[in-house]
């Protein structure tokens, strides 16, 4: 039943993403055909997760798992139900005090099952269309799963359409740049440097219209 609801919801999402927004995807062929894989993207808007999930065919929906903060996405009962059953997030506990085991355990398990994780290493949406420092959790995840390809995806325009703190969706075409998969370089620092460099390169591929 929830699977059917999920499918229905994402068919609706795809219609909105295609007609109201409109995506211009560069190098779609670099997206993984099967898991395990990790997609990492910059974070500007609540639309990010939905758009990232729309990039892969509907048949892959059941193996897509966005990784999201428990304190935000499980805040209310309704939101928790939606996050866990429709988005099917892997909830991460961000508060250090209550952490006993590896906070990424559920992510490792999902990768072992061959699922595709979607991560936003900036952690928060922040100011729209501006990238902030990347958090290191992704490096820990990549270190534990060195064979899993990490694919950087840079999006532009979603923060213009629906920035943090707004409920008014304003249509804009959105640019999506898929990067080459990153192989595990041997150390967490090297991984973070590579990831940062990839995002820097992807984000300067096109001159975006100023938005101030």
């Amino acid at each position: 039943m929830t699977r059917a609801l999920q499918l229905l919801f994402f068919v609706f999402v795809r219609v909105v993403v295609t007609f109201v927004l409109g995506l211009n995807v560069r190098r779609r062929e670099l997206l993984p055909e099967d898991g395990p894989a990790i997609l990492v993207a910059n974070h500007n808007s609540h639309l990010d997760t939905l758009v990232m999930m729309s990039l892969l065919p509907l048949s892959k929906l059941s193996s897509l798992r966005p990784v999201a903060a428990a304190d935000y996405f499980l805040k209310t009962r309704a939101m928790a139900w939606f996050s866990l059953n429709i988005l099917r997030i892997i909830a991460i506990d961000r508060s250090r005090a209550t952490r006993r085991e590896d906070p990424l355990a559920a992510c490792h398990e999902a990768l072992n099952k061959g699922e595709i994780l979607i991560l936003f290493p900036e952690g928060s949406r922040g100011a729209p269309e501006e990238m902030t420092a990347l958090k290191k959790g992704i490096a820990h995840l990549a270190e534990k799963n060195p064979q899993v390809p990490v694919i950087p995806v840079f999006t532009h325009g979603l923060g213009k359409s629906l920035p943090k703190g707004s409920f008014l969706l304003v249509p804009f075409f959105c640019d999506i740049f898929v990067g080459e998969p990153i192989a595990w370089p041997g150390s967490r620092d090297a991984f973070m440097t590579t990831l940062g460099a990839r995002f820097a390169a992807l984000s300067t591929e096109k001159d975006f219209a100023p938005w101030e």
């Binding site: 729209p128 304003v170 249509p171 804009f172 075409f173 100023p210």
Partner: peptide, 26 residues
Amino acid sequence: SFLAFKEYLSMIPTRRADRRVLFFAY
């Protein structure tokens, strides 16, 4: 018209403060 106008607005410099104005224009 909608697709052309969306293309136009995505292409030109716009202001953050004008999101609501763009919505009315749509």
